[in-house]
Deep mutational scan, measured.
Amino acid sequence: DRIFMTRTEALEFLLKAHQTAVDKIGHPSHKQTPADHAAIEALDRLLLDVRARRVDQFQINASAAQIIVTD
């Protein structure tokens, strides 16, 4: 599946995904793992790359739809 978004929409989408990941590892019942921190770092890099126009398409994980940034 493909989803087309403007750059602004894609950045909002990534910010929400980032916040969800941060909230998940901050929850008291969740045991933090290196994979959790790696996922947040990957989202940080992706946010910067989309914002800087170095990336025009991405996929958060293998089961997610491919996001295509349109400007």
Rank of each mutant, 00 (worst) to 15 (best):
1 D>P: 12
1 D>L: 01
2 R>L: 10
2 R>S: 07
2 R>N: 06
2 R>I: 13
2 R>W: 08
3 I>V: 10
3 I>H: 04
3 I>L: 09
3 I>A: 03
3 I>Y: 06
3 I>W: 09
3 I>E: 02
3 I>K: 05
3 I>T: 04
3 I>G: 01
3 I>F: 06
4 F>Y: 14
4 F>H: 05
4 F>E: 04
4 F>W: 07
4 F>K: 04
4 F>D: 01
4 F>R: 05
5 M>F: 03
5 M>E: 00
5 M>A: 01
5 M>K: 02
5 M>S: 00
6 T>K: 04
6 T>H: 03
6 T>C: 04
6 T>V: 02
6 T>G: 04
6 T>E: 02
6 T>R: 04
6 T>A: 03
7 R>G: 01
7 R>Y: 11
8 T>P: 09
8 T>N: 12
8 T>H: 14
8 T>Q: 14
9 E>C: 07
9 E>G: 04
9 E>Y: 02
9 E>M: 08
9 E>H: 04
9 E>P: 00
10 A>K: 00
10 A>Y: 01
10 A>T: 02
10 A>C: 03
10 A>E: 00
10 A>H: 07
11 L>M: 10
11 L>A: 03
11 L>Y: 07
12 E>Y: 11
12 E>I: 12
12 E>C: 11
12 E>M: 11
12 E>R: 13
12 E>N: 11
13 F>R: 02
13 F>Q: 02
13 F>E: 03
14 L>D: 00
14 L>Y: 00
14 L>F: 01
14 L>I: 10
14 L>K: 00
15 L>W: 14
16 K>C: 06
16 K>P: 00
16 K>F: 09
16 K>Q: 09
17 A>Y: 08
17 A>R: 04
17 A>N: 03
17 A>W: 09
17 A>V: 11
17 A>F: 07
18 H>K: 15
18 H>Q: 09
19 Q>P: 01
20 T>S: 14
20 T>W: 10
20 T>Q: 15
20 T>H: 12
21 A>Q: 08
21 A>H: 08
21 A>Y: 13
22 V>G: 03
22 V>I: 11
22 V>K: 11
22 V>P: 01
22 V>N: 05
22 V>L: 13
22 V>M: 14
23 D>F: 02
23 D>Q: 11
23 D>R: 12
23 D>E: 14
24 K>G: 06
24 K>C: 05
24 K>D: 05
24 K>H: 08
24 K>R: 13
24 K>A: 11
24 K>Y: 07
24 K>I: 09
25 I>L: 13
25 I>H: 06
26 G>E: 09
26 G>T: 14
26 G>K: 15
26 G>N: 15
27 H>A: 12
27 H>F: 08
27 H>Q: 12
28 P>R: 06
28 P>W: 02
29 S>D: 14
29 S>C: 06
29 S>A: 12
29 S>L: 10
29 S>P: 08
30 H>V: 07
30 H>M: 06
30 H>C: 05
30 H>D: 08
30 H>W: 10
30 H>P: 05
31 K>N: 13
31 K>V: 14
31 K>Y: 10
31 K>S: 14
31 K>W: 10
31 K>A: 11
31 K>E: 13
31 K>C: 05
32 Q>V: 15
32 Q>C: 08
32 Q>I: 14
32 Q>H: 15
32 Q>D: 13
32 Q>W: 15
33 T>P: 04
33 T>I: 06
33 T>L: 07
33 T>D: 12
33 T>W: 07
34 P>L: 10
34 P>M: 09
34 P>W: 10
35 A>V: 07
35 A>P: 05
35 A>R: 07
35 A>W: 08
36 D>S: 05
36 D>M: 08
36 D>R: 03
37 H>R: 14
37 H>P: 04
37 H>K: 12
37 H>G: 07
37 H>W: 15
38 A>K: 09
38 A>G: 05
38 A>F: 11
38 A>N: 06
38 A>Q: 11
38 A>T: 07
39 A>F: 15
39 A>W: 13
39 A>Y: 15
39 A>H: 10
39 A>C: 06
39 A>Q: 12
39 A>G: 06
39 A>D: 10
39 A>I: 14
40 I>S: 02
40 I>F: 04
40 I>A: 04
40 I>Q: 03
40 I>D: 01
41 E>Y: 05
41 E>N: 09
41 E>G: 07
41 E>I: 12
42 A>S: 09
42 A>Y: 15
42 A>N: 09
43 L>E: 00
43 L>Y: 03
43 L>P: 00
43 L>G: 00
43 L>T: 01
43 L>N: 00
43 L>F: 03
44 D>M: 15
44 D>R: 15
44 D>A: 15
44 D>Y: 15
45 R>Q: 12
45 R>G: 04
45 R>S: 05
46 L>N: 00
46 L>G: 00
46 L>K: 01
46 L>E: 00
46 L>H: 01
46 L>V: 02
47 L>M: 11
47 L>K: 02
47 L>I: 15
48 L>M: 12
48 L>N: 15
48 L>K: 15
48 L>E: 15
48 L>S: 14
49 D>A: 13
49 D>E: 13
49 D>N: 07
49 D>Y: 04
49 D>S: 04
49 D>M: 12
49 D>W: 05
49 D>R: 04
49 D>Q: 09
49 D>C: 07
50 V>C: 02
50 V>R: 01
50 V>W: 01
50 V>I: 06
51 R>V: 08
51 R>F: 11
51 R>K: 13
51 R>L: 13
51 R>T: 08
51 R>Q: 12
52 A>T: 11
52 A>Q: 12
53 R>E: 10
53 R>T: 04
53 R>A: 10
53 R>M: 11
53 R>H: 14
54 R>S: 05
54 R>D: 03
54 R>E: 04
54 R>P: 01
54 R>K: 11
55 V>R: 05
55 V>A: 04
55 V>G: 01
55 V>Y: 02
56 D>L: 12
56 D>G: 09
56 D>S: 15
57 Q>M: 13
57 Q>S: 14
57 Q>L: 07
57 Q>K: 12
58 F>G: 00
58 F>H: 00
58 F>V: 01
58 F>D: 00
58 F>N: 00
58 F>Q: 00
58 F>P: 00
58 F>C: 01
58 F>K: 00
58 F>W: 02
59 Q>C: 05
59 Q>W: 12
59 Q>P: 03
59 Q>G: 03
59 Q>A: 06
59 Q>T: 09
60 I>C: 06
60 I>W: 07
60 I>V: 08
61 N>D: 11
61 N>R: 08
61 N>G: 12
61 N>A: 11
61 N>F: 11
61 N>T: 12
62 A>G: 15
62 A>H: 10
62 A>R: 08
62 A>S: 11
62 A>Q: 10
63 S>G: 12
63 S>F: 14
63 S>A: 11
63 S>W: 11
64 A>W: 09
64 A>E: 11
64 A>I: 07
64 A>P: 07
64 A>Q: 11
64 A>D: 12
65 A>L: 12
65 A>Y: 13
65 A>K: 09
65 A>T: 12
65 A>P: 14
66 Q>F: 15
67 I>L: 02
67 I>R: 01
67 I>H: 02
67 I>K: 01
68 I>Q: 05
68 I>D: 02
68 I>T: 07
68 I>Y: 11
68 I>N: 04
69 V>W: 02
69 V>F: 03
69 V>K: 01
69 V>C: 02
69 V>L: 10
70 T>F: 10
70 T>C: 10
70 T>S: 10
70 T>N: 08
71 D>P: 07
71 D>T: 07
71 D>F: 04
71 D>R: 06
71 D>I: 14
71 D>V: 09
